[in-house]
Design a protein around this nucleic acid. Structure first.
Lengths: 230, 230
DNA sequence: TAGATTGTTAATCGATTAACAATC
DNA sequence: TAGATTGTTAATCGATTAACAATC
């Protein structure tokens, strides 16, 4: 869980002129939200940091700061060109190349994810489904035939998938994770409620819906406990 | 999106002796992970910050710092009592009271969430399902009959639900959110890919799976772009 | 030119890490 | 007592906010 990546101190990396520079993780995490917000302005030519920030649910200051890491894509006194800014954020996020995704664990959640149309709208292609259950293997879900676990490595290679989604029970998640890493994916999104270990050259993001509810419970509880009802 | 809550500077709030104090948001967000990790030590009497941190995927220093906000639940030279620590984290998160949850939007995702057994294991009860589609209303999912939208407010009141989950398309999410707030829920977890607005007395958490993939794409892209393949 | 709005700098704030004194 | 391990303090680091000079 070391997010270090520097030796003596990351060399400033020969400024690649264009939209390179070092983009902080917190900024990267907000970029998809800006892209989403920009879609709400389709047809409009320009928008301002005030307007766009409002749509994205952040402050104008934060939006401008975030965008400044990507380069100078606005015009002072005018605002941002909606089309151009969308394009540039897409470039920075690497969405000009379509990424291929395999989903492991075709239970209720895996099934839902396999059928989730937003993935395609946002530039991702689900190219493979895998499960261990013999009752599920061979069935067709969202136009794909579910493969057995043994086929995972081959599947990743032949489809050239770079991202794996884990939608298995917690118990098998680490094994699946290892298999995905072994097969060569570089990014993993897991929904399994447990901590996973990946080598540092693989990127891991975890969504735990039960944990989300527990965080909500904390605030619910504090609110009730503080007794601030009139 | 103002997370302010202070006037001149939050009054130190008469130290409620027990596990009160002010727990920082970043710590709260990690508590469910500690609870999860502790479950892996069931049967064991004590564990150390080293061991537990390892299981939870954080550093020992961070674990101890986090736990120190809750109170002093470890013994120097010995470690933490697994049973007691689990209990205390549960108390802080407010899990001693079971929270009731309603899910709005019974498409693929809503269906999966309604059937997600981990919710029950972690102290939440799904008590109601709502959808607009006449073809879905009236059907039975995970032992519950799907109610029409008009029934939302009544459902929340009669079940005494405090948390709402939004699993609708983006287009209807804000309206559903407003309805949930109007019905009196105090926490909302949304999966709809758009920014939502809630009054400041309502807690909102958002999971956007497509955004997660886009964040993974960024790193994928950087890795490929940097050309560090031997 | 006058008004608008960005991009950037500086100040603040919060979160993480490291180290160690307290204490079991 | 000696060894282990916490709880806390201080140092570092990163992220957010506010303000404004640059500039369209």
């Amino acid at each position: 869980m070391d997010t270090q990546r520097t030796g003596p101190r990351a060399a400033p990396r020969v400024r690649t002129n264009g939209p390179a520079r070092e983009v902080p993780p917190s900024t990267v995490a907000r970029l998809p939200g800006y892209l989403r917000a920009l879609q709400g302005f389709e047809g409009v030519v320009t928008t301002s940091s005030d307007e766009l920030a409002d749509a994205a649910g952040v402050t104008p200051a934060q939006l401008r700061k975030d965008l400044s890491f990507l380069g100078s894509y606005g015009r002072r006194g005018v605002g941002y060109d909606v089309e151009h800014l969308s394009e540039q954020i897409g470039v920075v996020l690497g969405l000009k190349t379509q990424r291929r995704v395999v989903i492991v664990g075709i239970g209720n959640l895996g099934h839902a994810l396999a059928s989730y149309s937003v993935f395609a709208e946002r530039g991702f292609a689900v190219v493979g489904l895998v499960d261990t259950d013999p009752a599920v293997v061979g069935t067709s879900v969202a136009g794909l035939v579910v493969q057995p676990s043994e086929g995972l490595a081959d599947l990743v290679r032949t489809t050239d998938a770079t991202i794996g989604i884990i939608a298995t029970p917690a118990a098998s998640a680490q094994a699946v994770c290892d298999a995905l890493v072994g097969a060569g994916v570089v990014g993993i999104l897991t929904f399994a409620p447990r901590a996973l270990r990946v080598p540092e050259n693989v990127d891991l993001r975890a969504v735990d819906v039960a944990s989300e509810l527990q965080i909500l419970a904390f605030h619910d509880h504090r609110r009730a406990g503080t007794g601030d009802s009139a």
